[in-house]
């Protein structure tokens, strides 16, 4: 595998996604509605109720990283699943006949999901700020955006693997929800892991979303960087494993 080729292609796929978003932004806006409602309604109500211990940060601030990740994960999962569509379109077939290494097609496609995620962040963060959420500093914020970018790529690859097993392209939305919801609820996005039943706690430990939330919460809200390196390591391992499996699953998609 030629790393430079893979990176170059990743860049092209991200540019492609960027141009498509620029031409049609409606999907971007509709996808931002749900997470914004989470912050505005659920966040505000739960802040008043004070049912969940969140230390010295407000509940809205506590859940903001998780809501961001839930929204970007959903976008990425959906983006990966669209590969089932592309199997029937000519674009994928054509890409297979170009000199590109095949793994770069999967990885490039996955990282393009990161571009969509970036736009989600741009829409949600201003709303959080209006609700009084304070971010620590710009440098930490940029680092956490990079982390979300990597996580998005991983989840897009995960859904490419799932797409490779799908025979038809029906029940698309349903499958997207069925993947994201458990990842979201069985993580530390809305409440500390310790509050969950034991069985779900174990799942949460293997849930990459937990590490993503932990890292971004540290960088955006709490500033407690004690587990940051470990979280980033966990995310990298998840990405690498998932990229390898997605590249293998890709063979099933093209036959």
């Amino acid at each position: 595998m030629n790393i430079i080729e893979v990176l170059r292609y990743m860049g092209v796929m991200m540019e492609l996604e960027f141009r498509r978003i620029m031409h049609d932004r409606t999907e971007l806006y509709t996808r931002a509605i749900q997470p914004i409602l989470w912050l505005v309604l659920y966040g505000t109500v739960m802040s008043i109720v004070r049912a969940i211990p969140t230390g010295n940060v407000s509940y809205i601030a506590y859940i903001t990283p998780g809501i961001l990740l839930q929204s970007t994960t959903f976008v990425s999962v959906f983006f990966g699943l669209q590969m089932v569509w592309e199997r029937e379109s000519g674009v994928l077939k054509k890409l297979l006949t170009t000199p590109l290494p095949r793994s770069s097609i999967v990885i490039g496609r996955s990282m393009a999901a990161g571009i969509r995620s970036l736009f989600q962040i741009l829409l949600i963060v201003p709303v959080a700020m209006l609700l009084g959420v304070q971010f620590i500093n710009v440098a930490f914020f940029i680092l956490s955006v990079l982390i979300i970018f990597l996580v998005s790529g991983g989840f897009a690859s995960l859904s490419i693997i799932i797409a490779s097993f799908m025979k038809t392209r029906e029940r698309f939305m349903g499958i997207g929800q069925a993947i994201t919801m458990p990842l979201f609820f069985a993580s530390n996005a809305l409440y500390p892991v310790e509050l969950m039943p034991k069985a779900i706690q174990y799942f949460a430990y293997f849930n990459p979303m937990s590490y993503a939330v932990s890292a971004t919460r540290a960088l955006m809200i709490t500033g407690d960087l004690s587990t940051l390196l470990f979280d980033i390591l966990a995310i990298m391992i998840f990405d690498i494993i998932i990229f390898i499996f997605a590249s293998l699953a890709f063979k099933r998609i093209i036959e």
């Binding site: 492609l16 379109s89 000519g90 674009v91 054509k94």
Partner: peptide, 13 residues
């Protein structure tokens, strides 16, 4: 070079 039977351009560009 190859042009597949199905559409292989991005219609939203």
């Amino acid at each position: 070079s190859y042009v597949p039977q199905e559409i292989s351009v991005w219609t939203d560009l």
